[in-house]
């Protein structure tokens, strides 16, 4: 009782440590959760296998008008060409039971039609989305070379897509430029917009 602060501090520390894993999902600065997911091309992709490289994760759903618009506008496809040193990965967490779900052939056709030049993986259980606390399509993450999440948020600052492409702030582009210069992305976190992930 007299030494109320020592037990309180200990409990605070213990609670903070105990809570850390539960509250570390997708936050900037947290270690990016590993995954091993099958691509629409039939290959297996894991984050652990990309250690040492900067990785961009994009949650996609071709049936979501926002994902589809950004694919048509080549928002990420063009950026990925400018950043050959970065690994791009699309993740589709649409449940297999949802009407938005696309079979591999349909997915490939969509990617080809829109010039999506990076692999897309299935996460039908939604576990990877939950691990990252991904909520929307699109929802963007930059994982830095040390395996930490460096950016979490929107693809750009123009939800309705009414600005000219050059006038938009592409947060992923800004984040990668900062990463390349050895700086932290700023902003490191934004509010994503778009369709909810179809869990």
């Amino acid at each position: 009782m007299r030494n109320r602060f020592i037990p309180t501090t200990s409990l605070l520390l213990a609670a903070a440590l105990a809570a850390a894993p539960a509250f570390a999902a997708g936050e900037v600065g947290a270690t990016a959760p590993n995954f091993e997911l099958k691509g629409v091309d039939g290959k297996s992709y894991s984050l652990a296998g990309l250690k040492g490289k900067t990785v961009v994760l994009e949650w996609v759903n071709p049936n979501c008008p926002f994902s589809d618009r950004h694919a048509r506008e080549k928002t990420m496809a063009e950026l990925s060409k400018q950043h050959g040193e970065v690994v791009w990965l699309g993740i589709n967490s649409t449940s297999a039971s949802h009407a938005n779900y696309l079979k591999p052939e349909e997915h490939k056709a969509w990617a080809t039609k829109n010039g999506v030049n990076y692999p897309i993986v299935y996460d039908e259980t939604g576990q990877t989305a939950k691990a990252y606390n991904a909520k929307t399509t699109p929802h963007m993450f930059i994982v830095d070379a040390s395996g930490k999440i460096a950016y979490n948020g929107a693809i750009d600052d123009d939800p309705p897509g009414r600005k000219a492409k050059a006038e938009r702030t592409n947060y992923v582009k800004a984040g990668l430029t900062a990463e390349k210069a050895g700086k932290d992305p700023s902003p490191a976190s934004t509010q994503p917009y778009g369709c909810s992930i179809k869990f």
């Binding site: 049936n63 979501c64 008008p65 926002f66 009407a99 938005n100 939800p159 309705p160 897509g161 009414r162 778009g194 369709c195 909810s196 179809k198």
Partner: peptide
């Protein structure tokens, strides 16, 4: 006007 209307799916309109 731009707006988004959603149920589970979402549709944007202008």
């Amino acid at each position: 006007l731009d707006y988004l209307i959603c149920k589970v799916d979402c549709v944007p309109y202008r």
